[in-house]
Computed example of a mutant assay.
Amino acid sequence: MADQKSDSKADAKAAKAAAKAEAREARGKRAEERSGGGVKAGVSTLRTRVAQVVWLVFVVAALFLAVGALLIALDANRDNGLVKFILDGANTVDLGIFSRNNGIKDFTGNNADVKNALFNWGIGAIVWLVVGRVLERIIRP
């Protein structure tokens, strides 16, 4: 009977020690989850943020080109500050390749300015979006 009591006490101590070890392990896992899983998670988070910023920059460039083409097509007042800002921004992000005046395609005749803006800046906006998405996918983990 004495052996049974000592065995019961030993089993109880072992069970208690196992419970403490499980509790410590659970606390360690929770702390690791809160900290982001270490360096690997930190790098992953950084790459995700950089990818988001890259995508945002490319979308803004495409928006400048698209809105600029729309403003040219609608014959917006070019003396207006906002219109001037958007057209200047579009001229900057067209990189000379998609220029309204000397772009991929140069229309002549009636409404050539509108056609040039819609075609060249439209193609430029699409290129900005495609390149931006490709870079975003390369950068993102």
Rank of each mutant, 00 (worst) to 15 (best):
I138N: 01
L95Y: 13
E22F: 01
L135Y: 04
A15E: 14
A2K: 09
G36Y: 05
K29I: 12
G132T: 02
E32L: 12
P141S: 10
A117Q: 06
D88P: 08
L56A: 15
K16V: 05
T48R: 13
L129P: 08
L82Y: 11
L70E: 07
A21L: 09
V60A: 14
K20L: 07
A125N: 02
N116P: 07
V83W: 03
F98I: 07
A21H: 01
D79S: 15
I139S: 03
R24T: 14
Q52F: 09
A19G: 09
M1K: 08
A125R: 02
V57Y: 07
R133V: 05
A12F: 12
K115T: 02
D106G: 08
L135E: 06
V59R: 08
D94R: 05
F64M: 11
L71V: 03
A21M: 04
A69R: 02
T48Q: 10
S6L: 10
G89C: 02
S99M: 06
A18C: 06
N116Q: 10
A2C: 00
K9T: 06
G68C: 10
L71Q: 13
K105F: 15
V43L: 15
A61K: 01
R140G: 00
K84N: 13
A69P: 01
N77C: 06
K20D: 14
A14V: 09
A51E: 02
D79G: 15
T48C: 08
A62T: 05
R49D: 13
K105W: 15
G81M: 13
R24C: 00
V127T: 04
A12S: 13
D7K: 14
K105A: 15
A31C: 00
V57K: 01
K9F: 05
F64W: 05
V39E: 03
T108P: 03
E32T: 03
K40Y: 06
D75S: 15
G38H: 00
K16D: 14
D113G: 06
A76G: 02
R140W: 00
V131S: 05
L74N: 10
W121Y: 06
K29L: 10
M1T: 08
K40M: 12
R78A: 11
E136Y: 12
A112V: 07
I72V: 15
L87R: 14
N116M: 11
L118N: 02
L129G: 10
K16F: 11
L135R: 01
S99A: 15
